[in-house]
Amino acid sequence: MTDTTTRPLKIRLLDGFGVDDGRLHVIPAARRLLALLAIRETAVTRATAAGLLWPEAPGKRAAASLRSTLWRLAKPTGPLVETDDDVLRLRPGVEVDFHAARRLVTTVVSTDRVPDARALDLLRAELLPDWDQPWLVAEQDWWHEARLRALEALSQRFRCAGDHHRAHQAALAAVHSDPLRESAQRTLVELHLADGNPAQAVRQYTGYRHRLRAELGLHPSPEIHRLVRPLLDRTP
């Protein structure tokens, strides 16, 4: 067993679940409980946790499942979850990557500071992909939108700082996450034009236009069309 007494335990929620960089095995029910507490950050009552994690079970059975899960979590490293007056919370000192990602979003959209290189990795990552628990959907939707807005803002921040390489990386990450998001496509077209690559700008716009028409039957907005119209008008 790896010694965890001299360093903080880490819970990963981005691009998949893990505890202690995957060195600590956690049963599925315990993963769901840890994820719930990590995402909520604040204390959660036992009744709320049991109802959310075992929604189809009668109340007593759900409560019993929660007690069993808490007992299993206490075995490998000491309690990962604290209980106090019938509420649950993560043990102080447990680090969660999603907390850092949420703080990063706030920093990117509300300040002029250019984040460090790790920012792109955090903002590329989905929140617990392949998990489909009903209690998680709203958080996944919020994170998807928040990180796309942050990636677009980060791309602009890098561009203003003269770092066009990372500006492109951020814009491409947004486009790959949501190819039909026009604001992300527009950011990438603007970068190609700023870099003196008109042909690449036209290809980006044309690919987006074809995909938008094929999948949704829509046309690009006049705003993005104006960016490339002078180039398209010169096309034979």
Rank of each mutant, 00 (worst) to 15 (best):
D97Q: 06
D97R: 10
D97C: 02
H99Q: 00
A100S: 12
A100C: 11
A100L: 07
A101G: 10
R103K: 13
R103D: 09
L104M: 11
V105L: 03
T106E: 09
T107Q: 13
T107V: 06
T107K: 10
V108S: 11
V109R: 15
V109Y: 07
S110M: 14
D112G: 15
D112I: 12
R113D: 05
R113F: 06
V114T: 15
V114A: 10
P115E: 09
P115C: 10
D116Q: 15
A117D: 15
R118S: 14
R118I: 04
L120E: 08
D121H: 14
D121M: 02
D121S: 14
D121L: 05
L122S: 08
L122P: 15
L122Q: 14
L123Y: 08
R124H: 13
A125N: 03
L128H: 07
P129G: 12
D130I: 08
D132L: 07
P134C: 08
W135G: 04
L136S: 03
V137M: 01
V137S: 04
A138R: 14
E139R: 14
E139D: 13
E139W: 11
E139K: 08
Q140G: 01
Q140H: 08
Q140V: 09
Q140I: 00
D141P: 00
H144V: 03
E145M: 03
A146V: 09
R147Y: 02
R147N: 05
L148Y: 02
L148F: 00
L148K: 06
R149G: 02
A150F: 06
L151Y: 03
E152Q: 10
E152F: 00
E152N: 11
E152K: 13
E152P: 00
A153N: 08
A153K: 13
Q156A: 11
Q156P: 00
R157Y: 01
R157S: 03
F158W: 07
F158D: 12
C160H: 13
C160L: 01
C160E: 02
D163R: 08
H164K: 12
H165R: 07
H165E: 09
H165K: 04
R166C: 00
R166W: 06
A167S: 13
A167E: 07
A167I: 05
H168N: 04
Q169L: 11
A170I: 08
A173L: 10
A173I: 04
A174H: 12
H176W: 01
